[in-house]
Nucleic acid binder design. Structure first.
Lengths: 300, 300
DNA sequence: TAAAAATACTCCATAGGTATTTTAT
DNA sequence: ATAAAATACCTATGGAGTATTTTTA
């Protein structure tokens, strides 16, 4: 019967590396050790556990089903270990180091340029690396440990994460100049029932929100997929239809005044922008503080 | 900047042992190593992490606040590691070894004698160790890893656990012989409004359920606390009042027919008996199977 | 002075390296 | 023949031991 101190964290790293690369040489390179060293450790782990993790068949390595299970658990051990080390770093010197934050594309270009200078001025030794990703990828990468936090809309499915709300972001209607609906000061969602509502590309949570709001309208896919709000507003201004925009995006997207922007009557449709992170993330305290900064900037 | 392979699982075990025992000697004994060995490893870990985990003050050791955080994370790493090892054991020889299962006191004496022989006949190499505990303790010990599963009523707060339902267990009224309510074949909960409803001791989830059901009745604490359903039924049969019983307990508790048992009209109050375990427990597959056994026996 | 942790030192188990062999295409 | 993993063997780091010193109540 094997016991916990018959295995080492390094062995787990090696096994995970082999599972990732499906090759002992590549895995060894990734771990900065020689191939025999890594082979020996993997073999020893297999022998201690009494479970064959890899099929070393002709020319290629593949995971056994047992290996799938064990490797998944090894990842969890390593993730907790990384968290411990990161927590120690934070305790030693809080507000330093690098944090990787995923931001959805319908927030990133509008919120970050505004608040980033403020944050980096306040915490000069804290380096924030932002990556533009969609909600589903952010949630996945958070769980995998390849992201530290996410900046997104809470209305989507975020799994089990800690979060701090930053702002409520109302949706407004964006119409081409001279559109009949522009005569009204405020629109209701039902006003859109007769209009052509243009949608963002699939995978964006904002698209899903708009779809849910405009169940009765003639929503229409576009021939050229709108991969960003920039494309979307261009289509609108060229008269192809109308759309919704997050209020956050309006100052940027309508900076040349080419669109007619109309708010909605209450209850205003919108989204809740929040910072999320893994529960028990070593940087939880930083994120709470970071959210406070974002809130003070984005709230107004 | 420390990295993951600057620390070992053994160092984490040592640190946790010191945190548990608040003494290097006792910790060393628990880890089966000498005190200097353990001291050296703890020191090295502190130096690698750059964080002081313990205050070695006059005569006694105590955890720093930083230490609280790090030790909690160390426990998580070790728990995941234990799970990995246990998973390997299960993969090597499924349905062997020992599983520790917490059972609430209002289920244990009534369900276990019935089903245990069947289960151990079916899986002779699987040894089940049952521990009678209340719901809150079961949930806590599951998270700590000192229990593998729990057998309890789903109506209580079980945190985030995997579970498999076993049976619905209706509640019935238990009355003393000759009680006026015994004239009716079926009771409704409001019939109890005029009766003295006796309660189980605090901490039992069954007590909480009964309290929630009988908000309007004159529930009454007893001078002598009823720490079990045995005491409770004795009080009822001696005429001190009426009570509810889980149907599961009736064959045992009323085996001498000293009580009048009356069912309730629909919707019948009751509880859902289930087996719960940590998500990603290495023995999840066994528990699913075990629940199947219990279901087939308890369902009838 | 007594009890507990730290220090000093020695030892050996083993992770890691290089060189080589085996294996399968 | 070649590419990849396994084997053989050597080295050196460091985890563990015993003996001792330091510290403080």
């Amino acid at each position: 019967m094997p016991s916990l101190h018959d295995l080492s964290l390094r062995q787990l790293q090696y096994v995970v590396a082999v599972a990732d690369t499906l090759g002992f040489h590549k895995a060894a390179a990734r771990c900065h050790v020689s191939q025999p060293t890594l082979s020996a450790q993997v073999q020893q782990l297999e022998s201690v556990l009494g479970v064959r993790l890899f099929e070393r068949d002709r020319r290629r390595v593949l995971l056994t089903t047992d290996g799938e299970d064990i490797v998944a658990r090894a990842r969890r051990v390593l993730l907790e270990g990384d968290d411990l080390v990161a927590a120690a770093d934070r305790l030693r010197e809080p507000f330093t180091g690098t944090l990787r934050i995923g931001v959805i594309p319908t927030i990133a270009p509008y919120l970050l340029p505004e608040v980033m200078p403020k944050v980096s001025a306040k915490y000069p030794k804290l380096s924030l690396v932002f990556r533009e990703e969609r909600t589903a990828d952010i949630v996945r990468d958070l769980a995998l440990g390849s992201l530290d936090a996410g900046l997104l809309a809470l209305e989507a499915d975020i799994g089990e994460c800690a979060h701090a709300e930053i702002a409520r972001d109302s949706f407004v209607a964006a119409l081409p100049k001279g559109h009949p609906l522009a005569r009204k000061r405020r629109l209701s969602l039902s006003d859109l029932n007769d209009a052509h509502v243009l949608l963002l590309d699939e995978g964006h949570c904002f698209r899903d929100q708009v779809l849910a709001l405009c169940t009765r309208a003639k929503v229409s896919e576009m021939t050229f997929r709108a991969t960003s709000l920039v494309t979307l507003t261009q289509m609108v201004s060229s008269g192809a239809g109308v759309t919704l925009l997050p209020a956050l995006a309006v100052p940027v997207e309508n900076r040349r005044g080419q669109l007619e922007i109309r708010p909605f009557v209450k209850p205003t449709p919108g989204r809740t922008i929040a910072l999320i992170w893994r529960p028990r993330s070593p940087s939880g305290a930083i994120f709470v503080e970071l959210a406070r900064c974002l809130r003070s900037r984005a709230g107004g």
